[in-house]
Amino acid sequence: MDLTFITQHYPLYVKAAVLTVVTGTIGIVLSAIVGLICALTRYYKIPVLRTITVIYTELSRNTPLIVQLFFLYFGLPKAGIVLSSEACGIIGLTFLGGSYMSESILSGFQSIKKAQIESAESLGLTRGQIMRYVVFPRAAAAAMPAVSANIIFLLKETSVFSAVALADLMYIAKDLIGMYSSTTESLLMLVIAYLIIILPISLLCSVLERRLRRGGA
């Protein structure tokens, strides 16, 4: 173990980790928004939009992120659309994550029994009020475990960003492995960096899940 190598190069990892977290967070937030919109169009069975959503979901779920990214980064410029590595990463992650989020959120909505909505209706609540007081809080609690699994899944998927030249953690690790023979040190820092990013979020998600479960069910 070469400690000087580690002390020399860890700032590179910090910078890359920040990039991973920032692009990942933006992508995940956008995924949740896209997912919510898609879930609503499917829950309310809005014509046309719903068909588009279904086609999008299938395309997104049945292709690998790396292939989506290659198409965005290397393919699209040939059609005149040039995107930066960061933009590609975020768009790709959103394209992938939107469908996963949509499935989770939709099944949250669908978990609410019809009788719940009917009893809210018979109390005289309007559609908007039913959504706000009955459907949303219940759906959020029901969808939470799946949504947090998605968040962690998407965070891990950001590791593919290096394929489109985004200087993320994988990129730095590969660079250092290529340049020096300090493979063990480079990989160790890579693992630690990912642990620092993913572990707290994974713990936070399980705490949140437990709290939500206590409130309802």
Binding site: E58, N62, T63, V67, F70, F71, G75, K78, A79
Partner: peptide, 24 residues
Amino acid sequence: APNAALWVYGTIFVMYFAVCFPLS
């Protein structure tokens, strides 16, 4: 074919879809 990348990666996208979609 300077614009080959668009079509080649597009084809690969479709290929993966053709494999995974029936399974789903």
